[in-house]
Nucleic acid binder design. Sequence first.
DNA 1: ACAAATGTAATCGTTACTGTTACTTAATTG
DNA 2: CAATTAAGTAACAGTAACGATTACATTTGT
Lengths: 138, 138
Amino acid sequence: MAVHVLAVLAYKDGDRVTSAFLAGSINTHPVIVRRLLLALQRAKLVETSKGAGAGSRLNCSPSRINLAQVYRAVEDSEAFATPSRKPNAACPVGNCILETMERIFASAQQALEKDLEKTTLANVLDIIKASCLCEKKR
Amino acid sequence: MAVHVLAVLAYKDGDRVTSAFLAGSINTHPVIVRRLLLALQRAKLVETSKGAGAGSRLNCSPSRINLAQVYRAVEDSEAFATPSRKPNAACPVGNCILETMERIFASAQQALEKDLEKTTLANVLDIIKASCLCEKKR
DNA sequence: ACAAATGTAATCGTTACTGTTACTTAATTG
DNA sequence: CAATTAAGTAACAGTAACGATTACATTTGT
């Protein structure tokens, strides 16, 4: 949904867009969009104004926003988590499985984000615009 | 928890281990372990017998089991999912964001699993045994 | 036959997230 | 300056996923 928000903002190229409009495209509630926008603001990816005629717009060029940034802006927990209960430290495996897994998870997390980094919002826009042309030709 | 299970089985090297024992090391309930074992059986990573003196053991050498296999055996949904409600097809972005994101998610998923592939259960065991040596030296 | 262990279903509690309502706050416009 | 517009925010309901637990059936070895 965060990428969807940013894609619409990029599509609207600098115009301010309201949370209600974004919610209409995503098919969700404006409050959900506003919560997303708050996270995207913190990450300085969008800029939002209040009051009449207000709304949000991108804070930088779509080519300078990659999906790893979006992921980090919006996602506050990592892809993997260890169980809430601590393993039995009296067992040789239980004693060190946690830190072992954390290293493995950190590596996988990095690989995931590295892959997301490869795609920019501009790339996403290009795909969408290409699809639109296809639609029109029919 | 699945890696923990397999690590204990590898540590016990061929001996049959009960779900109660595994649960004791993980600090969870035997039924949770049995559910994991069912998934690991389906993936042919472990072999389980029923009845008195029964239990589970690895079905292949720890060096031939990598963590991507474990992940796929145990995890039935992917790391990313699209929202349950479909976007507004009347919006140019809403119309094609879904398939665009699915491509991006598939790539990230592959990157994640590729990274997990790099670590085998034997690697995990090595780390654990090395940690144990450290403990003993103190 | 008995005991040990898995397979399995039903249920509860917790957590996280989306959705919704309601209200406050801020900014623009007539 | 008042009215309107839109974001910020809190509170709460609904849903889904997962772990934990209990209970019971099933299988197997002694």
